[in-house]
Design a binder for these strands. Structure first.
Lengths: 110, 110
DNA sequence: CACTATACATAGCCGTGATATGTATGTCAA
DNA sequence: TTGACATACATATCACGGCTATGTATAGTG
């Protein structure tokens, strides 16, 4: 299981990056993240839906109600302009921290 | 300023990686992190000391009181065996999330 | 007809950074 | 001498966010 803090730090960047590929909905996002992480990132719906609501409230993403092929209701989310900006900033910050960590790790073998 | 969640996710991994280079103390760790991140990661003492106390309580690191060249008291921290194990696990988790994010980012340009 | 997967939502608990505050000492310039 | 600043550690309060549990509803399957 991935640490809570790491989940918190990666949730918004991952959602933004996923939605940058095209609109999606809660349940599918959970499955997609699980698949892309080889089953290591197992998000719960109780965690993701508040994340989506917050991001929509902050204007990063927008939603529309739609229906699946079977007639089931789905809430589709898609990126807004501010979301794309946020995605870039998240990536910059993530890269920075990653480089510091990677640099330290590399020095361990010198 | 780096997002709070990212700070939380990277604090323990960074402290462990730094102490893997040799023992250090609170104030120096703050300076070192700031220097290695080009001033982007500006940890506060009110954040770091509780982190160190928690890690010591959990048996990841140990401390000893020492003195600087000028006679000022310092609390030096060093890695314990469990800390090295935790460092490896942190790195694995971090790498996993990073690869998922990097994979998504790469696809944006395909 | 029961079970599982799909699909969304929220309430309460707990951990953690941010901020503010407190204590203490060494250095350096006015 | 005095004031400012850096060094050095510590903790209390607050706000935020994931985790867990719970609730509602429907489609597909054995």
């Amino acid at each position: 299981m991935i640490r809570k803090e790491l989940v918190a730090a990666s949730a918004e960047p991952l959602v933004l990056a996923l939605l940058a590929q095209g609109e999606s909905y809660g349940y599918a996002i959970i499955q997609e993240v699980k698949a892309r992480s080889d089953g290591k990132l197992q998000w719960t719906d109780g965690m993701l839906y508040p994340v989506l609501h917050r991001m929509e409230h902050r204007g990063l993403i927008k939603s529309r109600w739609g229906e699946s092929e079977t007639g089931r209701k789905r809430k589709y989310y898609s990126l807004k302009k501010d979301g794309k900006t946020a995605m870039v900033k998240h990536h910059e910050q993530w890269s920075l921290v990653h480089s510091v960590l990677a640099g330290l790790k590399k020095e361990q073998y010198v």
